[in-house]
């Protein structure tokens, strides 16, 4: 089980990094979202994996999952929505203002293949 979770975190991170390194704003935002998943799950797993032990106090429970990472990740999820929204708004504003959604300034994109430009 631990292997599955760890490898899923790895896959999400790899996908996130690759997309963040793209040149247009939309894939970069997708990449940040993937990284957000990876980081949230990663933080969550710092409480180790517990099955069937939700931290709701009740009689006769054997053990509980660690509640602290859960509380921290809960706010992290909501905050990451706020952050994504701001980034999307900035990206959208930049696109609407210049009709261009490249994330790099002009000189840097000169090294990329020019034929694909619209």
């Amino acid at each position: 089980m631990e292997f599955l979770v760890a490898s899923a975190i790895g896959a999400l991170t790899a996908g996130g990094i690759y997309l963040v390194l793209r040149l247009r704003s939309f894939p970069v935002i997708l990449g940040i979202s993937l990284l957000t998943y990876a980081v949230n799950v990663f933080l969550f797993t710092s409480g180790r994996l517990t099955i069937g032990g939700a931290p709701i106090l009740r009689e006769g429970a054997i053990g509980y999952a660690d509640p602290l990472p859960q509380a921290l990740v809960l706010t992290a999820i909501v905050i990451s929505f706020g952050m994504t929204a701001v980034v999307v708004m900035i990206g959208l504003g930049a696109f609407l203002g210049s009709d261009d959604d490249r994330v790099d300034d002009a000189p840097a994109s000169a090294q990329d293949s020019p034929e694909a430009r619209p």
Binding site: G10, A14, G15, Y18, L21, F42, T45
Partner: peptide, 21 residues
């Protein structure tokens, strides 16, 4: 980019797997 991404993914996997155990 793929190289960087795979390296990053492996690192995240290694770290998570390591402390999960």
């Amino acid at each position: 980019d793929a190289g960087l991404a795979i390296a990053g993914g492996l690192a995240a996997f290694g770290l998570a797997y390591h402390y999960l155990l």
